[in-house]
Design a protein around this nucleic acid. Structure first.
Lengths: 168, 168
DNA sequence: ATCAAACCTTAACGTAACGTCAAAGTTTTT
DNA sequence: AAAAACTTTGACGTTACGTTAAGGTTTGAT
């Protein structure tokens, strides 16, 4: 009847159950993160529910943006500790490290946002400018006595920027 | 005397002035973002100050995390507009788009941080647990009547998770 | 039993933006 | 003139898969 009974499933079902793709599962296998319980006579990968749980572990760690290499390390830790407490202690280091990194990411993107916001403000002042792009200073900038155009490095042409630089 | 006079410089100087590497400059050339003014008789790339300004433009756009393809488009816009105002209007779309994306990135990482924080809290409750990792429920979790261990998908072993799942 | 649909297999290229050799030629300095 | 410093092209490595391609396997229906 079925070549895949005993509660085993092929890769498609496994992937769907875990909410990922077959390509991802095969890739994880290549990386040594997961491997099928057995193969069917025709060569199909067969997975048990244990594998499914393991795959879900991997994916839950991926949600926290650990890279696969680190995930492998973390999962392997499960076999290196006798008690859950020890394991918890060990894994908490990974989690706290990651937490710090994510904080840095957030800070970084906030900085990028700042840069963008300031650039946008500067360029807005140039909207009413009728000068050619090669010109040096918008009337608006002159009036406001602001170095807007020039403060936006990619707004004015290289030759203009160069001119300005040489004058310094 | 010098084979690189006339205010021209070789790639090393260019890169250092702009605060990047020669590899990056060559890559940008490959991508069509920048190209040397000329070559020395021996084949060395020679750059003018205009190229330096252009490279700085590219790098300033990179600080806002535009990808190179987008940077190319933005820089090309400089030649498509007659007035600075028009150019400003056009570029503002790119900047605002990027601003939105960066906001999304920040939101995303904040979500990741949330997940991490909650996971850390859950696992902290398991620190005093003496059970083997394969066991099902920490005394701590039982006492607190909290589904902590089980709520951390990668903390308990696959077989345990499976057991739990089958009981549902 | 047979046939098609649906599924699976391995293999391999593509992605982004460079880092990092390697082997050999050029410029600059001593 | 020789050595030090610099440059050249070429090519592989990186991350985590997506996306064909060409060809077997299972499954469900008839």
């Amino acid at each position: 009847m079925s070549k895949c009974n005993d509660g085993l499933m092929h890769i498609g079902k496994l992937a769907k159950e875990a909410g990922t793709t077959t390509r991802t599962v095969r890739y994880y296998e290549e990386m040594g993160l997961i491997c099928p319980e057995c193969r069917s006579s025709g060569g199909f990968r067969c997975y048990s529910h244990e594998q499914l749980a393991r795959l879900r572990m991997i994916l839950s760690l991926k949600e926290m943006e650990f890279d696969l290499e680190h995930i492998k390390v973390i999962i392997d830790k499960r076999e290196k500790h006798k008690t859950a407490g020890e394991l918890a202690h060990d894994i908490l280091e990974d989690l706290n490290g990651r937490l710090r990194e994510v904080g840095e990411q957030i800070a970084h993107y906030k900085h990028v946002r700042e840069t963008l916001t300031q650039t946008i403000a500067s360029i807005c002042a140039c909207l009413p400018c009728d000068l050619r792009v090669e010109e040096r200073l918008c009337p608006a900038c002159q009036t406001l006595n602001q170095p807007t155009c020039q403060s936006v490095p990619f707004f004015h042409s290289p030759s203009t920027a160069e001119t300005l630089e040489l004058k310094l």
